[in-house]
């Protein structure tokens, strides 16, 4: 495992004169998903935008040893894909066209996607559960289906670093797990890593190898659910969400899972 696959050092960013993020440092290992957790306004989206240079930021980001601020825009797009909270598709477009946009970093200005790329786009749509909907109008989809379509576009982008800003916010329980399973399948055993902003800590505990907890623009804790102690994690979560209990319990197959309970005794978030 190469610890220096991606490193962010002392990242500070904001909007105008208002600083939202201060001195955040972390690293990502290849083949892993890192969950970005924190309350609303804690700086999750700002961090994602700062990493991919959509916002001016201080600090350094190194991807495979290469400083990101030296990469030209096109090269950056070949290395990093970014899913915003809501995609800005405003025209009625078939899903296939939306997914094919993912090939743009590798295409010339006037070049059109090849037949192979069209087939790959169809397969990506099938992988996210939108089989046979290539010609469906994007604007007629539910918000959840739109997120799945944008996930399919991310699959064809085939980049080293994936930055996803709440890719599950409009998905139902089944599709939320399904989309993270797809992401897990894409990342695992590959020279890729993902930084995913999520609101649901249970989902993050289940699917992420590392958790970055943000509070008021600062990094509160960097957790590793596989080997950090329950007490340490519980304390870190309590600083973000208020008093919570983190417990281990077996699921139906006997596999031990982590469950976060709020002080009212219900699974978090209630």
């Amino acid at each position: 495992m190469d610890p220096a696959f991606f490193t962010a050092k002392n990242i500070s960013a904001g909007y105008g004169k208002q600083t939202v993020l201060e001195d955040v440092s972390f690293s990502l290992e290849p083949g892993t998903i890192t969950g970005l957790l924190g309350a609303n306004g804690s700086g999750k989206s700002t961090l994602l935008k700062a990493v991919c240079r959509l916002l001016p930021a201080r600090g350094t980001c190194l991807l495979k040893g290469q400083p990101l601020d030296t990469l030209p825009r096109r090269r950056l797009a070949k290395e990093i894909s970014y899913i915003p909270q809501r995609s800005g598709v405003i025209l009625s477009l078939p899903l296939l066209e939306v997914v094919l946009m993912g090939f743009n970093p590798g295409l010339g200005l006037l070049q059109r996607p090849s037949r192979t790329q069209r087939d790959a786009a169809r397969q990506a749509l099938a992988a996210v559960g939108l089989t046979g909907m290539e010609d469906t109008d994007y604007l007629t989809l539910s918000e959840g289906q739109k997120q799945l379509c944008i996930l399919a576009r991310t699959l064809v982008e085939d980049t080293s670093l994936l930055l996803l800003d709440e890719p599950d916010s409009a998905l139902d329980f089944h599709n939320r797990c399904h989309s993270l399973q797809i992401l897990q399948g894409l990342i695992r055993n590959q020279e890729k890593a993902a930084l995913v902003s999520v609101h649901d800590p249970l989902l993050a505990l289940d699917f992420c190898q590392q958790l970055l907890l943000l509070k008021e623009g600062r990094c509160m804790a960097l957790l590793h659910p596989a080997y950090d102690s329950l007490n340490d994690m519980q304390e870190a979560f309590s600083q973000i969400y208020g008093p919570v209990s983190l417990i281990r319990c077996p699921d139906r197959s006997g596999r031990e899972r982590l469950v976060l309970l709020s002080e009212h005794g219900t699974a978090f978030p209630c």
Binding site: K49, C52, L54, R73, R74, L76, A77, K78, I80, S81, Y82, P84, S87, G88, V89, I90, L91, L93, E97, M101, G102, N104, P105, G106, E157
Partner: peptide
């Protein structure tokens, strides 16, 4: 078509 997206999205698509 790519310009019809949000500017940040277009930029991240190269």
């Amino acid at each position: 078509l790519l310009l019809s997206l949000e500017e940040s999205e277009s930029r991240m698509l190269g």
